Amino acid sequence: MRAVVTAPASVLSTVAAEVDPADPEIVELADELVAIMRASPGCVGLAAPQIGVSAQVFCVDVTGHPKAATTHGTFVLCNAKVLEASRWRPGREGCMSVPDLTGDVKRAGRIVVAGLRPGTGEAVTLTTDAFEARALQHEIDHCAGKLFLDRVAGAHAIYQRKVYL
């Protein structure tokens, strides 16, 4: 398995390329992302740029997380876009690619996302809220070359991480 890259790696600040979800390499990448996420304690999502691959592919699974309300289990999306966003609220975020910091980020508490499933290319529209919505937006940001640090209100909203999972 590939290692998670950390800021300031340039792949994390570059808009990732759209992908062909039927490409066997993308299917392999999707499987690898899920494997790394599952092997990383506390991880609820992982995007391809975080393992050094400039591709719009990510996985999410917030099952069992105490802040999760709605959960769709483990899923992978390619070329995902937010179609609707509402109920904006601040919340604390961390990231494996920024291991020493957390920050307060304002995100939509309810979203509708469209993307494609790897392998089949099936179009998926997902409606979710709360923590799963935050996780999805965080991973979509990775594919757009943005870190949570790009979304904090300022230096006063960035904190040293106190707990390592």
Rank of each mutant, 00 (worst) to 15 (best):
L126Y: 15
A22L: 14
T127C: 13
A7D: 08
G154P: 12
A114G: 02
D141I: 11
A153E: 09
V105D: 00
A30L: 02
S54M: 06
H72D: 01
L33N: 04
C78Y: 07
M37N: 04
I51Y: 00
P99W: 03
H156N: 14
L29N: 01
R38P: 01
L147N: 10
Q137R: 13
I26F: 00
S10K: 13
L116E: 15
E139M: 05
D31F: 10
A16V: 03
T74Y: 04
G64W: 00
A108C: 13
A69E: 15
A39Q: 14
N79W: 00
S10H: 11
M1F: 08
S10V: 07
P90K: 06
A3M: 13
M1Y: 13
P118E: 06
G145L: 13
A35P: 13
E25T: 15
V34P: 09
L29W: 02
L83C: 08
D61C: 00
S54C: 07
A153V: 02
V76P: 00
V124N: 09
R87S: 15
M37L: 13
V105E: 00
V124D: 06
I36E: 05
D20P: 01
Q137L: 07
V34Y: 07
V44T: 12
R151H: 11
V5K: 03
V44S: 11
V82H: 00
Y159R: 10
P21N: 09
D61P: 02
A55P: 13
V34R: 07
S13A: 11
V105P: 00
E25S: 15
T102R: 04
L101H: 10
G52F: 08
V53P: 03
Q50S: 05
E122Q: 14
C78A: 06
C59S: 11
G94E: 05
A3W: 09
F75G: 05
E122K: 14
V4W: 03
A114L: 10
A7P: 01
T71N: 09
A130D: 14
F131V: 07
M96W: 13
V5F: 09
V44G: 06
G115W: 02
V82M: 03
